[in-house]
Design a protein around this nucleic acid. Structure first.
Lengths: 140, 140
DNA sequence: TGAAATGCGACCGAATTGATCCGAATTGGG
DNA sequence: CCCAATTCGGATCAATTCGGTCGCATTTCA
């Protein structure tokens, strides 16, 4: 019942990107420096985020990352799903096969739980996070 | 974003216990046979469940397990917390220390997400699960 | 065209999880 | 009152996954 550190980092990185992506591109190294996440790990996360279509990566010198969608259109659920795959609390739902199949009276209740969790994550948009605490780094 | 198999098993075991605990005690081995979970694993889960106060264990010959509370008073959240510890999506909340401390603009949003998740889990009681699909398996 | 910077992919180590085994405690029967 | 069977409890060991690191192909600016 705990999402992986990668997903946590991904949210931080996305927030940092939203904050710095005012008008240009940001490099993964720069984001790593900004967030304190190890550079290679940040690159790995950025790769997944790009593959998921949340970030747009520009190759070559002077390139970098930028949000593929406006910050208001990106939610925690999107980021978590990009890193961790579909939001399903149990493997049963994905594979459709419980190791203990039986009647599995629990199965009918998972969809509603999953939906609730996803809703909770979807309720928080990236714009909200970025605006919450710019802290000392107030940008004009 | 996926709870451990142990927690999943725990829910199945609790449901089976609620179903078979009509008037007596059930052995861990019997529950394992009923649910299809490996016996040693079932014992391990039962231990944690007992330690958490959800099950009452009776030692000795003819002993076994029984629900410590009525099924209606036990929710998924209780079981998950018994196995996985407190429901916190990120380690930051527990430890109070992010590896990337910075401003951590994400932190203020976690409590509401955690509460929503916990609420979703607490909304499903063990009685509901046990009543959903008794021993018989309807045609699908 | 050349060189530098960047993102991308694969490899390796560490940690948590999951499964197994053995020992201690308790009760029922003789 | 003693013995034995059955049970839970804890400790140990292997496996899968996650996290971190390194090297390379690609792409752009000079």
């Amino acid at each position: 019942m705990r999402l992986s550190n990668l997903a946590d980092y991904a949210i931080v990185i996305m927030a940092a990107t939203a904050r710095k992506c005012g008008g240009g591109r940001v490099s993964a190294a720069d984001l790593a420096l900004e967030t304190g996440i190890p550079v290679p790990t940040a690159q790995k996360i950025v790769s997944k985020l790009s593959a998921a279509g949340l970030l747009r990566s520009t190759r070559g010198a002077g390139g970098g990352l930028q949000l593929a969608r406006p910050a208001a259109a990106i939610s925690m659920a999107d980021i978590v799903e990009a890193i961790e795959g579909p939001i399903a609390l149990v493997s049963c739902i994905d594979t459709g096969d419980c190791t203990v199949d039986h009647e599995c009276s629990v199965k009918p209740h998972w969809p509603q739980v999953n939906a609730a969790v996803r809703g909770a994550l979807a309720a928080v948009s990236l714009a909200k996070i970025a605006n919450e605490a710019p802290a000392q780094k107030e940008m004009a």
